[in-house]
Design a protein around this nucleic acid. Structure first.
Length: 735
DNA sequence: TACACATTATTTTTT
DNA sequence: ATAATGTGTA
């Protein structure tokens, strides 16, 4: 392929691009930032750019590093670039998520940070279990400070690229009795002895290696290797990802220009809670001087009304670069806004509207219900089942999170990596072998004193008489089993080995003989797991995949409406989109606003923007006056985002008499739903204190608040910070 | 050690 | 309301 040829004779894939898109494709030298609004053909520009780099002979595929936000996006990019190049698959390039790419690198250099290259990648559940052990050893109350919450804080540090040594010991605040930084340090130590990494470590370890002058050759090698870097969804990168990227991209004076292209949309930044820094996109020019900035602003997806409504909502945000999306599409139909009595009525209405669309010949695959939080899917599922509307829920409980799958994987993990204590602990007594807590504690105590793994402790202690003969024999047999399976790893096909392990361990038999109602389903899942392994070359590759690809694969292709979260919908589009639950507290989420104030609210608003811009032709927004939460009813107020929709582009269809929002352009007949009543007026707790509604109380964990309802000894309290909670009267005192 | 029972938090969002 | 955890008993 000669460059002269491709320049003089326009490549077919360049046709049909609009001028800015074309600029995004052809500006190949030096840093480029593409600001791509929703529906502006971003993916098309990106994939064309990659195809163009390859086609014009500027780089071979192994010289390209392309980072996507999800595995699905990586897959799509792979397919679309291949298609542009005539169908032959592109091999050998570094294409994947930050985590997948960093893991691939870390496997090659693991020894530089004291790991073995077969290290285990822990999932969030493993992380929490590990930290819980550490917290218990440190005598920290794991009820008051839940391991999950503590891990979340540690993860945020990791998102920021901060190791324990970068933190002052008091930076955890009150958390874990002020010892969180110390726990973080112990946690990192334990990970190392377990030969394990969590998600954040994949990037942090690589950053550590890249920054270590003693290993300058490693980074230099990647600098030589990668001629072109491309990053999608740049607005959602966190500091650690940014550092990793910058190290790879900034090659120094001798290295030639940084051919890095970042693509993003500050208005679609919705992962701040996970450490994403919109600031990264704002300071791109500073990091890469002379960067070309290209804006894609022509929207090809939505009708005029939909785009105008979305623009109107997002315009309320202060903190944005500002884009001006336009379309040459027709106005189309106005957005429908509807208030309903309660969540059930809302689901019923959505169901009816979907049926009408179906009668008009719309395809269910092109219809989506986008909710703020996972628990909202349920009402829609129930209603759709009644109506016989086929649906699929994306992002619900994931296959690899099911108990039986995690158990089976634990067996395979112990085989692949003996020092994976968390996996071994998980299945040491599953199925029941008479190895209870007491035994495990003995083993751990020994291991801690010697600084060795569970597996090594077992090996040692089965040589002595410290354990009861029965226990000793069981452990010995288990270790023999694992040794045997491990010895088969190289000679046997990995799928057959997995089947054999499940049989010989008795794990499969345990479920087959169980009379639990969901036992048959679990047996099915286990078989599916083994069958699914066929796709992978080896056990190691399979385990790597499941560690990094936490997404559900979309198995059946049958026509069905999609129910998913707004976050999950990013990057997707549908002819018709339903956006239910636009109520204060639910959307925008109370928790986000409490925790992050105005910037949290702006992120929620971006989420609203993402939701509306998923729609091509029709958008339906709804809110309910009453919603059931934590088992009791609350009356809800329509979301402020409803008020922010520009009136000229929406059609309000609310049921009569329902609260219609605060602003004047809605009908404000203002009949409020009946108040559901408290059963008692006052209650006396064990300490003899009398509580009545309206009393001010204080709680150890939640602080001060006002009693809004009394139900037996349970009090509903509106806390000054942290929202409404239901607590026992024994946990609060008057103040 | 294992099960039945009671209590308690849980409802963001994901690699 | 439900799932998950913890407590007490066989």
């Amino acid at each position: 392929m000669h460059m002269a040829e491709s320049l003089s004779q326009e490549a077919p894939y360049l046709r049909d691009l609009n001028p800015p898109q074309r600029e995004a494709v052809e500006t190949l030298d030096g840093p480029v930032l593409v600001l791509a609004g929703a529906g502006t053909g971003k993916t098309r520009a990106l994939t064309t750019r990659l195809a163009h780099i390859l086609q014009s002979g500027r780089a071979f595929s192994p010289q390209i590093l392309a980072v996507t936000f999800t595995n699905k996006a990586a897959q799509e990019m792979k397919e679309r670039v291949s298609a542009l190049l005539g169908g032959a698959p592109v091999e050998g390039w570094w294409l994947g998520t930050f985590h997948a790419l960093a893991a691939r690198m870390l496997r090659r250099h693991a020894d530089l940070v004291g790991l073995d290259s077969n290290f285990t990648i822990l999932d969030p559940d493993d992380q929490a279990r590990l930290l819980k052990q550490i917290m218990e050893a440190a005598n920290i109350d794991t009820k008051k400070w839940t391991p999950k919450a503590m891990i979340a804080m540690i993860d945020r540090w990791k998102d920021k690229g901060l190791l324990p040594t970068d933190l002052n010991s008091d930076e955890g605040g009150e958390a874990a009795n002020g010892q969180l930084v110390g726990l973080y340090r112990l946690y990192q130590q334990r990970l190392k002895t377990l030969n394990a990494c969590d998600f954040g470590d994949l990037l942090l370890h690589m950053i550590t290696i890249f920054k270590n002058p003693a290993h300058a050759d490693v980074l230099a090698d990647y600098h030589r290797r990668f001629k072109y870097l491309l990053v999608d969804e740049y607005q959602d990168t966190n500091v650690a990802q940014y550092l990793w990227l910058r190290l790879l991209a900034q090659r120094g004076p001798e290295g030639g220009p940084s051919n890095i292209c970042c693509v993003g949309d500050d208005d679609q930044s919705i992962y701040g809670w996970r450490g994403a820094e919109v600031g990264n996109i704002l300071k791109f020019e500073k990091d890469f001087p002379g960067a070309a900035i290209i804006r894609l602003e022509q929207n090809y997806r939505s009708t005029g009304h939909i785009l105008a409504a979305a623009n109107g909502v997002i315009a309320k945000n202060e903190d944005r670069l500002g884009k001006n999306l336009f379309t040459s599409e027709e106005d189309g139909e106005k957005l429908i806004v509807r208030g309903l009595w309660d969540g059930e009525a809302e689901a019923r209405w959505v169901g009816e509207e979907i049926e009408q669309l179906q009668h008009k010949g719309w395809n269910l695959n092109q219809i989506a219900v986008l909710v703020r939080a996972g628990f909202q899917t349920r009402e829609f599922e129930e209603r759709f089942i009644q109506l016989g509307i086929h649906y699929r829920v994306i992002g619900g409980p994931r296959f690899y999170e099911r108990m039986e799958i995690r158990d089976a994987l634990a067996y395979l993990r112990v085989i692949a990596q003996p020092s994976d204590d968390l996996a071994l602990e998980r299945i040491i007594n599953v199925p029941k072998r008479g190895l209870g807590d007491a035994t495990v504690q003995t083993l751990y105590a020994y291991g801690r004193s010697k600084g060795i793994s569970l597996h090594e402790s077992i090996r040692d202690l089965t040589q002595t008489d410290e354990l009861r003969p029965k226990v000793k024999e069981t452990l010995g047999r288990l270790m023999d089993d694992f040794a045997r399976w491990r010895s088969l790893l190289d000679s046997m096909k990995h799928t057959d080995l997995a089947g054999q392990v499940l049989d010989e361990s008795g794990y499969m038999a345990m479920w087959q003989s169980s009379k639990d109602v969901d036992a048959p389903g679990r047996v099915e899942n286990l078989k599916e797991l083994v069958a699914g392994m066929e796709e992978f070359v080896s056990m190691a590759e399979f385990l790597e995949h499941i560690a990094l690809v936490m997404e559900n694969r979309d198995g059946n292709e049958a026509e069905a409406a999609t129910i998913m979260t707004l976050h999950g919908a990013k990057g997707l589009e549908f002819d018709a989109v339903f956006l239910p639950g636009w109520e204060e507290g639910l959307f925008p989420s109370q928790r986000t606003m409490d925790e992050n104030g105005l910037s949290g609210l702006e992120e929620e608003r971006r989420l609203a923007y993402v939701g509306i811009t998923r729609a091509r032709k029709r958008a339906y927004i709804s809110f309910a006056a009453n919603r059931r939460m934590y088992g009791n009813w609350i009356n809800a107020i329509p979301s402020r985002f409803v008020d922010e929709l520009p009136p000229g582009h929406v059609e309000v269809q609310s049921d009569t008499g329902l609260y219609q929002g605060r602003s004047s352009h809605w009908d404000s007949s203002g009949v409020r739903p009946p108040v559901r009543m408290a059963t008692e007026r006052k209650v006396i707790n064990a300490a003899g204190e009398v509580f009545a509604r309206g009393d001010r109380v204080s709680h150890d964990k939640f602080g001060e608040g006002t009693i809004i309802n009394i139900d037996g000894h349970k009090l509903d309290i509106a806390f000054d910070r942290g929202g409404k909670k239901r607590v026992m009267d024994s946990f609060v005192e008057k103040c």
